[in-house]
Structures are given as C-alpha cells and as structure tokens.
C-alpha cells in the first residue's frame, strides 16, 4: 500500500495536524511502509471470528444516577491557555 501526498494532506487535515509539503512527502513514504507491513493481516482467516470488544470478559459497570461531581469551575478552567469569566476562550467560530 503506497500513500500519496494528497492522502497524507487529507488525513493530517482530519487529525488537525499542520504538515508542510516536505513533511507530507516524507510521511507518505513512512506511513506507506507501515501500511504495507500491516497488510499481512489480510492473510489471517477471520471468517466467523468476532472482533475483540473487551480484553477481559466482564459486564459493563454502571453509575447510580446521583450528582457527585461538578462545582469546580475554577479547577476546570485553571489549565486553559485562555479563559475569561469562567469560560474557555477560543478563536471566533463561524458557523
């Protein structure tokens, strides 16, 4: 499986990681190599095999419907690069 630059550009956009053309070139080679290598999985006969959904067999646990958290607005925003009046602040979003 070889990857082209356009595909690298598309997935870096999806992943929100800026890449230069040079990086895309390099990544196309590296990622293509990794993908070519993982493609050997196609050899494994997986007919009728269930994909693994949980490593350890157990039942999903659940919470009681009680309020046990929150009320820590200062903590929530204290690590934010930018905040104001208790809100996180981000560049203007145009919808």
């Amino acid at each position: 499986m070889s990857l082209d630059k356009a595909t690298v550009a598309r997935i870096s956009r999806l992943a929100r990681i800026a890449t230069t053309e040079e990086e895309q070139e390099r990544l196309a080679g590296e990622l293509g190599g990794i993908l070519a290598w993982v493609e050997q999985l196609g050899e494994v006969d997986t007919d009728g095999v269930e994909p693994m959904t949980s490593v350890v067999e157990m039942l999903l646990k659940s919470r009681e419907d009680v309020v046990s958290d929150g009320g820590i607005a200062d903590d929530v925003v204290r690590n934010a690069p930018k905040s104001a009046h208790g809100f996180f602040v981000v560049p203007k979003v145009v919808e």
Partner: peptide, 14 residues
C-alpha cells in the same frame, strides 16, 4: 480492512 480485521486477529491471538 484495517481496524476491524485487526480486532478479529486480536481475537485469534487471544
């Protein structure tokens, strides 16, 4: 082709 197959192979390994 990738993720689902890998999780099936994982079942095989387990």
């Amino acid at each position: 082709a990738y993720y689902l197959q890998a999780q099936k192979v994982r079942t095989r390994i387990a």
